[in-house]
């Protein structure tokens, strides 16, 4: 799901030319996915390292940050992650419920440009992972295996002045998402 969401964010927020994206169907809704091998590999490597943290409940947030030319964040798509409570409903019911919620969330991302101001030209992106205490050790193994090292993010990449909070979707599986939009990105 995060992979689909990242592709769609990069398309909707015009970080990359629309020519590299192709329409696909995920969760029964049309989405735009990049067909650029290098970009796709980068996203896959990133998420491959994030996955064990999510599975062990070591990742508090996964944040897709859109940055301007000076590497200041102008938008943050925040995926707050917490373990779902132990559920008594059947896995089939849960799966279809989660699928419906993911579909709704994908649709929200598709139309989020309506509530966001335009980004300045020349933006790039990064993915930040907010880890819980003692989480980094779990990531160390996978980043060595994948030869995809992670470092502590710089303050300037993390700090955003007076962000405007735009809630997107709260799911009953406790995955909460919102966008931070920088108010003066065009100044």
């Amino acid at each position: 799901f995060l992979e689909v969401a990242i592709h769609l964010i990069l398309y909707v927020r015009e970080v990359y030319p629309s020519g590299i994206f192709q329409k696909r169907k995920k969760y029964n809704v049309p989405v735009q996915m990049s067909c650029h091998p290098e970009l796709n590999q980068y996203i896959q490597d990133t998420l491959h390292c994030v996955k064990p943290l999510i599975e062990k409940n070591d990742a508090e947030k996964v944040v897709v940050v859109i940055m301007d030319k000076e590497h200041h964040p102008v938008e943050r798509f925040v995926f707050e992650i917490s373990q779902p409570p132990l559920l008594s409903i059947s896995s089939d019911t849960l799966l279809s419920h989660v699928e419906q919620l993911l579909r709704a969330f994908i649709l929200k991302i598709s139309v989020c440009d309506a509530v966001l101001s335009n980004n300045p030209p020349g933006c790039s992106f990064t993915v930040l992972v907010h880890t819980r205490e003692a989480a980094t050790r779990n990531m160390e193994k996978v980043q060595v295996i994948k030869d995809f090292p992670w470092i502590v993010a710089d303050e300037q990449e993390v700090h955003m002045q007076e962000p405007r909070l735009i809630p997107l979707k709260t799911m009953t599986s406790d995955i909460v998402k919102y966008i931070h939009d920088c108010i003066d990105k065009e100044s």
Binding site: Y42, E133, P149, V152
Partner: peptide, 27 residues
């Protein structure tokens, strides 16, 4: 090390818009 909560990012940057555009022109 590796004890506390951190905000981590990949060391490598994703391909830039310019890099992607230049590979598109090569095709």
């Amino acid at each position: 090390g590796g004890g506390g909560a951190h905000i981590l990012k990949p060391l490598m940057s994703p391909p830039s818009r310019e890099e992607i555009l230049s590979t598109l022109l090569d095709l």
